[in-house]
């Protein structure tokens, strides 16, 4: 092959330098404008009136109560959906049964439902005009406009996260190691704890992480079922909204900075987990 053909081939394998740099510039510009700038604005707005105002805003009883409710919601929903995710992935990847692909589709269903609708359906079940509304008010049980409603809506929204991380992994992994454990005399629990769990732990953590981020950050669904009762049924994202609508910008952005911090921590851990998963 002579030099001229070589250059020709090289030219058809790589873009000209000016195109390369323009593309990089476009990509970077877009990322800066849409991703970096918002993060920066959260910080500057939160500290617009200085440290003291920031601390005061976060120390408000409403903000503290909102943070507490957010943590409580995550504390209930994440473990439940983790157990669900593991069970669903186990049943789907280790057994053959009719309706399996339907089940797999249904597990992903909450992803394609608008958050507002996710909240609405629980109002329809438990609200004053809902299926159980009458019975619930007779027995003085509050679900809608109360913590249980928030938890239920969050459960719905974060339902698929763990399962959808585990299913492809466990499918690909196959069950040979588990069969080996059984053939060596292990019982089901020993097999699961000593063989399955170590093999899926990074994907499991990954799913838990995403599930948690969504559970703490969900706005639309929770907004519908919460009733916005201050210090009672406001989660942190709802507190952000309330403060913003009341023109308490420092308060809104101070709470937002907590949530943005959560997002950053999530992204960092996510990168770490992806790196670990890549390694194994």
């Amino acid at each position: 092959m002579n030099a001229a053909t070589q250059t020709l081939i090289k030219n058809s394998l790589q873009e000209p330098v000016w195109i390369r740099w323009s593309l990089i510039a476009i990509a970077l510009g877009f990322i800066l404008m849409f991703l970096c700038l918002p993060l920066w604005i959260v910080i500057t707005e939160a500290f617009a009136k200085g440290w003291a105002a920031y601390i005061t805003a976060l120390g408000q009883p409403d903000a503290v109560a909102a943070l507490r409710l957010t943590l409580l919601t995550a504390l209930i929903t994440v473990p439940l959906n983790t157990i669900l995710g593991v069970c669903a992935a186990w049943a789907i990847t280790r057994f053959e049964f009719t309706g399996k692909s339907l089940l797999t589709t249904l597990i992903d269903l909450p992803f394609s439902v608008s958050p507002v609708i996710s909240g609405l359906i629980f109002v329809l079940v438990f609200g004053a005009q809902g299926w159980f509304g009458h019975w619930l008010s007779e027995h003085d049980i509050k679900i809608i406009f109360a913590v249980p409603g928030i938890v239920l809506a969050t459960l719905f929204i974060t339902f698929p996260f763990v399962a959808r991380e585990l299913i492809p992994l466990m499918q690909e992994m196959g069950s040979e190691e588990e069969e080996a454990a059984l053939s060596l005399g292990a019982n089901g629990w020993q097999m699961f704890v000593q063989i399955t769990l170590p093999n899926i732990k990074w994907a499991l953590l990954y799913g838990v992480l995403l599930c948690n981020a969504r559970a703490m950050g969900e706005f639309g669904a929770v907004s519908v079922v919460s009733g916005h009762i201050r210090s009672m049924t406001n989660t942190l994202p709802l507190h952000v909204e309330v403060s913003y609508n009341e023109y308490d910008f420092v308060g809104a952005f101070a709470s937002a900075s907590i949530l943005a911090g959560l997002a950053i921590v999530t992204l960092v851990l996510k990168s770490v987990l992806e790196w670990r998963q890549g390694k194994h």
Binding site: P38, G217, A252, A256, L262, L267
Partner: peptide
């Protein structure tokens, strides 16, 4: 590049209410 690549998922991780008030402000 790696840092920016990780940042791409920000809209997944950032609560939508936060995104909402930030974008409105900008």
């Amino acid at each position: 590049k790696r840092l920016l690549d990780a940042l791409i998922d920000l809209p997944f991780a950032l609560p939508t209410a936060v995104a909402g008030i930030v974008l409105a402000t900008i």
